[in-house]
């Protein structure tokens, strides 16, 4: 199992305090967690960065892992491609502890993977990134004609949709007929 260290080793920003500087509490070392996608490549991510994901944040809060336990049990996201999880982890690291800007220039520009990213981000419940991704998807078809939109988003025409529906119905009918015949055979 390979491992990439995506997390930063910098400590979490100190809490604002009214106490004098000399009496300031020592900085608490930042905790790290581990996630992997379909490709099993493990990414080390700080708790601060993972706070963007409501899903992972909820898991962390419920499990109460120590660093060793977290290392031994990376969160598995088998339904997310490795490169997509990498993009998500990168985004979370870039926006760790920062207010999210209204326009994000760090979004992936690969149009082919944008829908995969939307689905992954939706699954991981990263609200801000989801907003950006949806905006990016909408921008893909800005000012395009219906034919161009159909091509870009790979939307089947009504005729193709109807043909596929007919085909599915036909197949379902055949399967049902086969099952009935098999049941009749068993009864004999």
């Amino acid at each position: 199992m390979s491992s990439t260290e995506q997390g930063t080793s910098s400590a979490a920003p100190a809490e604002p305090t009214t106490a004098p500087e000399s009496a300031a509490a020592p900085e608490v070392p930042e905790s790290f967690y581990y996630v992997h996608g379909k490709d099993k490549v493990v990414h080390k991510v700080s708790a601060g960065a993972l706070q963007h994901s409501a899903l992972i944040h909820g898991m962390i809060s419920n499990l109460g892992y120590t660093e060793e336990q977290a290392k031994a049990n990376p969160f598995p996201f088998e339904n997310i491609d490795g490169d997509i999880l990498q993009m998500v982890v990168d985004w979370c690291n870039q926006h760790k502890g920062k207010p999210t800007p209204p326009e994000d220039t760090n979004l992936p520009k690969q149009k082919e993977k944008l829908f995969d990213l939307v689905l992954a981000v939706n699954y991981l419940e990263i609200k801000e990134l989801l907003t950006y991704c949806c905006k990016q998807v909408a921008m893909m078809v800005k000012g395009k004609s219906p034919e161009e939109i159909r091509e870009i988003w790979m939307i089947p025409t009504d005729a193709e949709d109807e043909a596929a529906e007919k085909e599915a119905k036909k197949r379902a009918g055949k399967e049902a007929a086969g099952e009935t015949a098999a049941a009749a055979g068993d009864a004999k």
């Binding site: 082919e112 993977k113 829908f115 995969d116 939307v118 689905l119 939706n122 988003w153 790979m154 939307i155 089947p156």
Partner: peptide, 9 residues
Amino acid sequence: KPYSWSDLP
């Protein structure tokens, strides 16, 4: 193939 519009919920 990568996901397309039709795959989105």
